[in-house]
Every structure is written in C-alpha cells, then in structure tokens.
Amino acid sequence: MMAVRIGLVGLGKIARDQHVPVLNASPDFTLTAIASRNAALEGTAHFATLEAMLEGQPDLEAVALCQPPQVRFEAAKAALRAGKHVFLEKPPGATLSEVKLLADIARAAGVTLFASWHSRYAPGVEPARVWLAGRRLRGVTIHWKEDVRHWHPGQDWIWEPGGMGVFDPGINALSIATHILPPFFLRDAVLEVPSNRAAPIAATLDAVTEEGVPVRAEFDWRQTGPQSWTILIETEDGPVRLEKGGAELYIGDVAQPLPPEAEYRGLYDRFAALIAAGESDVDVAPLRQVADAYLSGRRVSVDPFEA
C-alpha cells in the first residue's frame, strides 16, 4: 500500500508529542496538512479549519482528529462524508450515541473509522492479557491518580460537560481493563465534583464481573509528587501488576522483559491495517463504563478547584 496522505486537526500537546513524530517516521502515512486556528507546523501546509483543509487538499485520504471531544463529532462527520478515513483521539466522542452515528456514517461512506485507545498499546498490556486468559480472577484494584495542573495546565474544556474531568485520564485505565479482563459492570460509583466545576476531579467505581469478581477503580486528579497509574489483578496463580500506565508488567514480583514504549506507533500501525482491509474499529467499551458512572454514580460536591 502506498503511503496514505493524512491531515492532522488540532496541534496541541498530544499532537506535537505523539502524532507528529510518529507520522513523520511512519512508512504508512505522509503528514500532508495541519488544521489549527492557533498553531502551525513548519514545512507542512496549514489551514485554519478542517473545512479549509479538505477544500485546499482534495487528495487528502485520511484525517486524525485531536481536538477536545465536545467538538469532534462535527469534524468527524465532515471528514467521513468527504470520503476520508478518520482516526479519533480518545475518547472517541462526548456521548455514546454520537460515536454510534459516526460508525454508521463511516459504513455508509465505505471508509475507515478508528476509535483509538493508546493505553492498550502500552508494552505490558498485551502480555498481561495473554497471561490472564483462562485464569481465575480474585479481584482487581485500579489506582489512576495524577496532578491535573501538571498534565492539563489552564485547559478549561476538561471541566465542561463532555470534557470528562478526571475520566479524561481514568478512561485510559478503563481502556486497559476492558481489554484484558472479562466483561464487568458497575455496581456503585461516587463522583467528587468541585463546587465551581461541571466535571469530577475524583471518582471511585465499584464494579463486578459476571462471576462476581470485584473490580475497584480509584481516580484522582489532585495527586502531587509521584503519579500513580497501576492495575493490580489478583488471580488463583498469584498477582499480576501493571505499573506506569502499562509500561511495566510484574507477574508475582518479577518484572517481565518488555519492548520499548511505542503506543502511538501501534495505533497508526493499526489504523493503516484497517484502511488496507477496508474495516473500522469503533470499540466504545471504555466510554460506556464512564457513561454508566455518570448515569448511576452519586455526585458529591467538594472544594472549588482553580487551575
């Protein structure tokens, strides 16, 4: 397959840190254009909007969308209806219904839609899934705690409806859990919402598998110092632990040899394979867990938060 000509919409931190270098090194894609109101990339065609990019680059074949989830639906719809393959940053949308509609539009247009979950491509995740397959679980504990001021300085959109608050990082943990564990469903949730914000700053989820195995997740955006991205799975054959968001894997207390981190290379390899096969991958399981937490969780008002 010849390299796919791709445009990037949104040129924030994640685009600069991950998408741009991976695309520049990829044999499968050629980064052709950028659409951003506030930033440009030297040596790459620049447009203020997606619509201008689609008009100015008619030979564009794919688009990667890196804007906040609240505005992603209209952009994805426009790109799909223009016949472009679409890569959605996580989360794939602000609601389950809009993602389902995008999948229908992609199918009707005969193009690929890829709802990406980068944490599933952390080096320890797939080995953990393989090791856990067929083993009896006893319990799962997830700690995903970080400092929002460090990772999202001055970003107000994450506190608005659809911005997801602490579930913006927490959905990374849920993307791993829904990939490596048997299906589980929510029994109880507590969402701690600052009195001056619309989205939670912390959350505790208590879920259970069909077999009754407890799955507890604790998310918090107020943690300073060392950050915590840990999933501990107790099994009848001993514990399995993913640390640093899946970059490290321990079976028992033994660190497992793993390849270097290459999450976004894995995502773009998957996107290229889907395009070549004429298929889509729109897994909304992590987003469904978040939606369930919002639907049935208890909201508790906590101290105001100022960035």
Rank of each mutant, 00 (worst) to 15 (best):
residue 24 N to Q: 15
residue 84 K to M: 12
residue 151 W to P: 05
residue 283 D to G: 10
residue 189 A to L: 10
residue 41 L to H: 12
residue 149 R to H: 09
residue 173 A to L: 02
residue 216 R to G: 03
residue 223 Q to G: 07
residue 33 A to T: 14
residue 221 W to T: 13
residue 250 Y to A: 01
residue 153 P to R: 04
residue 7 G to N: 13
residue 157 W to T: 05
residue 129 R to T: 04
residue 292 D to Q: 15
residue 33 A to W: 06
residue 229 W to C: 02
residue 222 R to K: 12
residue 232 L to N: 09
residue 272 A to I: 12
residue 177 A to I: 09
residue 156 D to Y: 04
residue 168 D to M: 08
residue 196 N to Q: 11
residue 194 P to K: 12
residue 179 H to C: 07
residue 42 E to I: 02
residue 86 V to I: 06
residue 5 R to T: 13
residue 154 G to T: 05
residue 162 G to T: 01
residue 58 P to A: 11
residue 93 G to R: 01
residue 84 K to Q: 11
residue 41 L to R: 07
residue 139 G to I: 02
residue 176 I to E: 06
residue 158 I to H: 03
residue 154 G to A: 08
residue 99 V to A: 11
residue 148 V to G: 00
residue 94 A to Q: 04
residue 245 G to C: 04
residue 6 I to Y: 09
residue 282 V to D: 09
residue 289 Q to V: 15
residue 264 Y to R: 08
residue 96 L to Q: 03
residue 284 V to F: 06
residue 219 F to A: 04
residue 293 A to K: 11
residue 286 P to V: 07
residue 64 A to P: 07
residue 168 D to G: 10
residue 293 A to E: 12
residue 208 V to R: 14
residue 159 W to F: 15
residue 304 P to L: 12
residue 148 V to D: 01
residue 75 A to L: 15
residue 131 W to G: 01
residue 63 V to R: 08
residue 159 W to I: 05
residue 241 R to D: 01
residue 135 R to C: 05
residue 146 E to N: 11
residue 121 Y to P: 00
residue 191 L to V: 11
residue 21 P to S: 13
residue 203 A to R: 03
residue 238 G to F: 10
residue 137 L to R: 08
residue 169 P to C: 04
residue 119 S to L: 06
residue 195 S to K: 11
residue 67 Q to T: 14
residue 307 A to G: 01
residue 120 R to Q: 14
residue 280 S to T: 11
residue 111 V to Y: 10
residue 142 I to K: 01
residue 12 G to Y: 00
residue 169 P to V: 07
residue 230 T to W: 01
residue 12 G to F: 01
residue 74 E to Q: 08
residue 145 K to W: 00
residue 39 A to M: 04
residue 287 L to Q: 09
residue 70 Q to Y: 00
residue 253 D to E: 15
residue 212 G to R: 09
residue 59 D to R: 11
residue 27 P to N: 11
residue 198 A to R: 14
residue 88 L to E: 05
residue 89 E to K: 05
residue 239 P to N: 12
residue 134 G to N: 06
residue 40 A to C: 09
residue 133 A to D: 10
residue 205 L to F: 13
residue 196 N to I: 14
residue 89 E to A: 05
residue 279 E to W: 00
residue 82 A to E: 04
residue 150 H to L: 15
residue 27 P to E: 13
residue 21 P to I: 06
residue 307 A to N: 14
residue 231 I to T: 05
residue 182 P to M: 10
residue 107 R to I: 03
residue 2 M to W: 06
residue 120 R to W: 04
residue 60 L to D: 09
residue 251 I to R: 13
residue 22 V to W: 10
residue 79 A to N: 04
residue 289 Q to C: 14
residue 114 F to A: 14
